[in-house]
Design a protein around this nucleic acid. Structure first.
Lengths: 226, 226, 226, 226
DNA sequence: GATGAATGAGAGTTCATTCAT
DNA sequence: CATGAATGAACTCTCATTCAT
C-alpha cells in the first residue's frame, strides 16, 4: 500500500527539463480530466506529453508520484490565486465570512473537474489532501477571528461548530460545482451561504464559564501550517 | 462506459448457490472495506469467498455487476433500517427536521466504510447512486412539508435552500462518519445539525408575491418515488 | 488433438432419450448456423435445447462427439434425400452425368449453411468428411459406368480425370451455394455443368494399349463402401 | 464481428523491433501450419517467437490482427512471385489459359498449408480474402482477353462461364495441393486442366444477337482493380 | 540524458467437464 | 436418470516499470 517514494526523483534544473516536466504534468491533467483515472496510465501520459516513457520515469519515480505532483501543482495554483485575498483580524465577522465564502467559490472554479478527481476519485493514490490543507489555513484564521471577537469566543463547542461550518461550505460549493454550475455565478448563492454560516454562529449557545480565549487543547488545525 | 449487463446473470435457485452468492458478496464487501477498490479484483474476491472464479462469473457477468449488487444490497439494508421511521405531513417543522437528521445519522452507521467507498471511490463503476435516491425521497418529503407549512412555503428560492440544506446535512454527517466517529454518538452533534437547518430556514427571505404553494415546475424530486 | 471417443456414449433406447438427443442436435445445428462455430459451446447448446448440461454429457461424451453426431445426422439426411435416385449401369453416359450433377445440386440444398460450416470451418473438429464419403459413392459408380462404356474405359488417366471432374462439380456447386444462390435454380447452370464434364470426357485422350477394363490398382474408392 | 483495429498498432522503427515483429509472424505461421488454428493462441505465439507477450501486443493490438498481418504477408509473397508473369491481350487464348493455369499452380506452391488454413479455416477471423482478390485480377484479364477474341466474345453467358472456370481451376488446384501433391508436379495435370478450360470454352453456346463485346452490366470483376 | 523496445505479473473472462444432490 | 452448481485451466489483453542503446 504505502510504497516508498512520493516526491520527485530529481529537481529539474535546466530549462529543458522544466519544460519536459511541465508537458508531462499538463498531459497528465488533461487525461485525468478528459478520460478519468481509469484511462490514466503512464505510457498514455508520456505519449500525450510527446515524451518518451523513459523520460517520464526520469522525473517521476512511479505513477503515484505523478498524481502527487499534479496535486501539489494544483494546490499551488489555488494558493497563488488566493494570495491576493487579505484576512485581517480586525474586520467584522460578517465581512470575514463573506471572504471565506468568496474564497471557497473562487478556488472551486480552478480546474474544477481536476479538483473533483483529485479530491474524490484518487484521494487514496498519493494525492495530498490539499482540501484539508487549505481548509486548515482558513480554519486557523477563523480561530484567530474568534479570538478577537470575544462575544463569539465564548461558544460552547467551537470545534464542532467549526467542523460543521467548514463542511457545509465545502460540500455546498463542491456539489454546486459538480452539478449546479449555474449556482456558482449567482450572487444569491453566495449570500445564502453567508447567511447559513452567520445564522448558525449568531444563535450558537454561549458558555459563560468559558473565559479561555480559544487556544484549542491539542490543536489539529495548526499542525499543517507554518 | 455503459456496458450492457449490470444485473446478476442467474438467480440462484438451490440453497447451495444462494450460499455461494452470499459468500461472494460478503467477500467483496470485506475486501472493499479492508483494502479499497485498488485491491478489489475478481480472483481475489472468489478466493476470499472460498469459491472458484467460475462460480463467481456464474452469478455476476462482470466485475461491475459485483459492485452494483453490493450497492443494491447496501441500499436495501439502509431502506429496511429506515422503514420504521414515519413521516407525517402534519407534524411540526422542527420535529420533521429532527427526523431527517436522525435518519441521516442512522443510515450513516450502516457499514460506514463500505458506504464511503461505494459513494465516493467507485461511484462511477456501476454503483447505484443510492445517496441520491435516498436524498430524493427525503427532499420530496421536505417539499411536502413546505406545502403544509404555509409560512415556509413562501420562501423566495426554495430550490436553492433545499439544495443547501441537503448538502450540509449529508456532508457533515458523512465527514463525521469518516473522521469524527465520536460525533455521531453525541446528542449535541444532532442538536446542532438541527439548529443549523432550522436557523437557516427561519431566517430565510420570504417572497410576499409568491402564493403558489410549492409545486416544483419540473419536479426532479418525485421522479424516483411512487 | 485426437481425443479418444467420438461415438456416442449411449444409444438412446427410450423415447424420451431420443427426444433429448434430437433437441440437443437441433439446438447445436441452430447455433452453428446462426452464430458460427465461435459461439458454439456446450452450455449454450444445452440451454438452447432446454436440457441440462449434465444431460448433454449423458449422451455426448464431449464437444467433438456433438459435432460428429451432427455431421452424421446431416449426412444421413442427405443420403435419405438421395435414396430415390437410381443409378443403373446401362444408362447413357450423358444421362448418368446429368444424374450426378442433379444429385450434387440437390444435396447442396439441404441445410447449406450447416453444410458449409461442417465441411469448411470445423472439418478438423471431429466432423466426418462426409463430402468425401458421398463423393466416393458417386466416384465408384462412375467407375462402374466406365466399365460398361468400353470406349470410355480406355482413358489414358482415369484417376486424374475423375479427380478433376469430381472437384469441379463439387467446387462449382459449393461456391454457387455460398455466394450465387440464384444459380442453383437455373437450368442453364445445370446444363453447363453437364457440358463441362462431358466435354472434358469426350475429348480425353485414349490409350489403345489399355485393354484392362478399369479395375483400379489400389482402389481408394471402394474402401469406404461395401 | 467487425472490431475496429485490424492493422498493426505500431510500425517498428528500430532494427530490433523489426526482428521482433518478424519472429512473431514466423512463430505465428509456424504454429498455424503445424498445429492449426485450435492451438493458435497469443501466449503460445509469443513463447515460440522467444518474445514476451507484452511485445506481441506492442505490435499487434489483438489476435485477429496477427492473422490479418499473416494474410497480408502471405498475399504479398504471392503477388511478388507472380509479378514476373506478363499477360498481353494479343496472345492466343490457349496461351493465355496456359498462363492462368500455370499461375494458379505456382501460387499454390507458396506455403500451401498456410494458404489452406488462411483461406479455409480462419477466413472469418480478419484474413483478407486474398484468394478472391487474386482471382479478381485474373478474371478481369480473362474478360479483357474475351474482348479481343471476338469469336469468344459472343458467348451466351460469359459471367456463368467465368464463374465455372475460375472455380474449377481453383478447386482442382487447391485439392491437389491438399491431398495429391504429386499431381502438382505432373505436366499431364497442367495439360488436362488447360484442356478442361479450353474444351468448355470452345463448345460454349454463342449468342449471334450478342454483338456487344463484353462490358459486363454490373461488373463485379473490376471493382477491386484499378 | 533521452529513447522506446521489452518485460511479465496479473487482471478479467470463458467454457469444457465433473459430480453431489 | 436429470439437474445445475461448481470447477479451474486456459486465454486475451493491460500497464507499470526496466534497461540496452
Amino acid at each position: 500500500m504505502a510504497k516508498t517514494p512520493i516526491k520527485q526523483r530529481k529537481e529539474p534544473k535546466q530549462a529543458r527539463s522544466k519544460a519536459t516536466v511541465n508537458a508531462i504534468l499538463e498531459a497528465a491533467a488533461h487525461i485525468l480530466v478528459k478520460d478519468g483515472y481509469g484511462a490514466f496510465n503512464t505510457n498514455h501520459v508520456a505519449q500525450k506529453a510527446g515524451v518518451s516513457i523513459g523520460s517520464l520515469y526520469q522525473y517521476f519515480p512511479n505513477k503515484e508520484s505523478l498524481i502527487a505532483a499534479l496535486s501539489l501543482s494544483h494546490v499551488t495554483q489555488i494558493r497563488d490565486s488566493l494570495s491576493d485575498i487579505e484576512f485581517s483580524p480586525d474586520m467584522k465577522l460578517e465581512t470575514f465570512v463573506q471572504l471565506v465564502v468568496k474564497n471557497h467559490i473562487k478556488l472551486h472554479r480552478i480546474n474544477p473537474k481536476l479538483h473533483h478527481i483529485l479530491t474524490k476519485e484518487v484521494s487514496a493514490y498519493g494525492a495530498l489532501n490539499h482540501q484539508q490543507v487549505l481548509s486548515d489555513e482558513i480554519q486557523e484564521k477563523l480561530y484567530w477571528m474568534m479570538k478577537y471577537h470575544t462575544e463569539t469566543a465564548k461558544l460552547k463547542n467551537p470545534q464542532l461548530i467549526l467542523f460543521m461550518i467548514m463542511n457545509s461550505v465545502e460540500a455546498i460549493t463542491h456539489t454546486a460545482m459538480s452539478s449546479k454550475m449555474e449556482y456558482l455565478d449567482s450572487p444569491l448563492f453566495e449570500a445564502e451561504l453567508v447567511r447559513l454560516v452567520l445564522g448558525f454562529l449568531s444563535e450558537a449557545e454561549r458558555d459563560p464559564t468559558n473565559t479561555e480565549p480559544f487556544i484549542p487543547p491539542e490543536n489539529p488545525v495548526t499542525k499543517n501550517s507554518k
